[in-house]
Design a protein around this nucleic acid. Structure first.
Lengths: 144, 144
DNA sequence: ATGCATGCAAACTTTTTGCAGATCA
DNA sequence: TGATCTGCAAAAAGTTTGCATGCAT
């Protein structure tokens, strides 16, 4: 928890932005959430903490955190947008079930390694990636 | 060109949908475009062909083509949405430059193979994937 | 004290939807 | 013929922005 604050506050300083109450509150909440979430649900949560917390602020801070690499964006096939916090760990790649909507991580370092190698080969300096695989999860296959 | 029509018309029949004039016109245009494009630009093009071509129809057909796997969706980090046609070929993975916006394909079958293997391992029946890597391309690195 | 950040509301962008009429099978 | 598709316009959803005020440094 402390760690996330430290990371973000250092980042904010680096980019010449203040580490305000609202940003701290958002980082706190992100530490609790851990898994992927929708902006709207997140806004509701922030409202519960503080009725004056504004929609605009959440969007503004999310944008900053995304730029800083503290958040990862997940686009589902049907156009929904999720975010997932990522304080200092590796990026996550995701597998999304079209039927039940379950999102699971790809747990295989080979994937990341291979992509890193590829970027090196073509001389591309990667700073972010988004990998989503859609289909039917094992449970939903059985149902169908 | 014929091939795309055949593929789409068969798909439409399969899902119980008509292959209308508008859909044909969209498929024709997609065959011409080849590279990635934004919905809005595409709508402008369709308008030029036919002033009555409606925004709604483009969205409706794009949605169907996406479901049929004839279109691939590309989400850029800053929230833009591109599409790319894909009539029967393999999916494309993309590398996107944050600076100049250039989008290039990942040309390496190993990536796809590895992901396929992973899905097999966890028993996930994949039907689509979206892989985007963001960063600085070689040219923009030199500039910076 | 100064200027950046916030809250609010309005604006904007992108996408969806209801309806009446046209169209495909 | 009859159900589906289209165009239109309005609505909905998602996100951004201008402005006055508040707060961090």
């Amino acid at each position: 928890m402390k760690r996330a604050h430290k990371l973000v506050s250092e980042y904010m300083e680096k980019v010449g932005s203040r580490y305000t109450m609202q940003k701290k509150a958002i980082v706190d909440e992100l530490c609790k959430v851990k898994t992927h979430f929708e902006v709207d649900d997140f806004i509701v949560k922030m409202h519960q903490k503080d009725n004056d917390f504004s929609r605009a602020t959440v969007y503004r801070v999310i944008k900053q955190l995304l730029e800083g690499g503290f958040l990862q964006k997940i686009n589902t096939k049907d156009g929904k947008v999720f975010y997932e916090q990522n304080f200092g760990d590796k990026l996550h790649d995701h597998i999304i079930c079209n039927n039940c909507g379950r999102i699971q991580e790809i747990k295989d370092d080979l994937v990341g390694d291979l992509l890193d190698k590829y970027c090196l080969k073509i001389n591309f300096e990667a700073d972010y990636r988004s990998l989503h695989i859609y289909g039917l999860c094992d449970k939903c296959q059985k149902k169908a």
